[in-house]
């Protein structure tokens, strides 16, 4: 059995032929996969070392000072340890992450007041709390991509289900829910975020949920139209005449044929998610500090105009990410253009 229908196959081939979109897709995917491994790649603890013949994995396990000949039961300070000769004598095969930085650690021992300009230790400088900008950018990328992907999935599920049910049921259900959606759409989103954020903690998933609740509406309109159109196709009538259940008709017969608007909107919804999180963070209504985030970096940059490395690097990162996503969206839209489908 084939995974994709011929139609989908043809669209994938067309997408691959659009070089710009295809490469953007790979660049963004690879970047995201690497950012998911950021714990291993960007960290200020060794990934592995052996000490007195035993193996240690500081990134994944908790070790105390006493384990390495120190006095206290507090967590080992690996920065000091790695400069300690007694430790280095007994330790061997130390594997460190390629970027030896932690996005949350303040480098208060540096001279001058933060933010510090780019240097050999901090390639993109530090922010106003003396935290490494590069590390925060990478972790911020991971956060905002994960956030947007989750948000997009949530939007897709809500939009498909609600729009689909509206279109499939039609009649009074459609009419009433359409009016309710119009009321819902007119709620001021930012105030709701502020209010909910002041009552509950603004966690990652809470923010995804709130944003999703306000962003599915656009997609539901498309899905409603698709379902209204497709439910009168003959093959749906045949399916009804054959006695298939409504759920089966909904998911197996209508939905796969009505997914074009979802797929073409997804990359743009990703862009929307990134921008939304960044602007919320910029305004201070987003993720709780000290979570690394691009919006927070931007607001720091605004407060520290004399430290352009914060703003410039963040804006560049944001620009490249959004551009890649837009290229992908453009390609997907082109690939799914019905004018390209042969009969």
């Amino acid at each position: 059995m084939r995974i994709f229908s011929d139609l989908t196959q043809a669209r994938l081939v067309r997408f691959r032929k659009m070089r710009r979109a295809y490469y953007s897709f790979w660049v963004l995917s690879v970047a995201y996969i690497f950012s998911l491994l950021a714990t291993l790649l960007v960290n200020d603890r060794p990934i592995y070392f052996s000490y007195q013949g035993e193996s240690y994995f500081p990134i994944f396990c908790h070790y105390t000072e006493q384990d390495f000949g120190g006095q206290y039961l507090t967590e080992a300070n690996y920065n000091n340890l790695l400069q300690n000769e007694h430790f280095l004598d007994k330790a061997s095969s130390i594997i460190s992450p390629p970027i030896y930085q932690n996005p949350l650690r303040s480098h208060l021992y540096l001279e001058d007041a933060p933010p510090h300009a780019p240097s050999w230790d901090h390639w993109l400088g530090t922010d106003e709390s003396a935290r490494d900008v590069l590390a925060r950018l990478i972790y911020g990328f991971r956060n905002c991509m994960s956030f947007s992907l989750l948000l997009t999935i949530a939007i897709a599920i809500l939009g498909i289900l609600i729009g689909g049910i509206q279109g499939y049921a039609g009649g009074l259900t459609d009419l009433i829910s359409q009016r309710l959606i119009e009321i819902w759409a007119s709620l001021p989103f930012l105030y709701v975020v502020i209010i909910i954020g002041s009552i509950y903690e603004r966690g990652f998933f809470m923010l995804v949920a709130i944003l999703a609740l306000f962003s599915w509406i656009g997609l539901s309109y498309y899905m409603r139209a698709e379902f209204l159109k497709l439910k009168n196709m003959n093959y749906i009538r045949v399916a009804r005449a054959l006695g298939l259940s409504k759920t089966r008709i909904f998911f197996k017969h209508i939905l796969p044929n009505g997914l074009t608007p979802v797929v073409t909107l997804l990359p743009f919804s990703l862009i929307g998610g990134i921008s939304a999180l960044t602007s919320l963070d910029f305004l201070g209504f987003g993720l709780n500090p000290p979570t690394p985030s691009w919006g927070e970096l931007l607001s720091q940059g605004l407060k520290n105009l004399h430290a352009p490395w914060i703003t410039v690097s963040t804006v560049c990162a944001l620009f490249i990410t959004l551009m890649l996503a837009a290229f992908i969206g453009e390609g997907v839209r082109e690939a799914f253009d019905p004018k390209g489908d042969e009969k």
């Binding site: 196709m233 093959y235 045949v238 054959l242 006695g243 044929n257």
Partner: peptide, 21 residues
């Protein structure tokens, strides 16, 4: 009645789900 009573439509182009073999 579904098993006993069936219908075939005019337009054979829209009578088959394009995504199913």
């Amino acid at each position: 009645l579904r098993k006993d009573l069936q219908i075939i439509f005019q337009d054979p182009y829209t009578s088959l789900n394009p995504r199913l073999t």
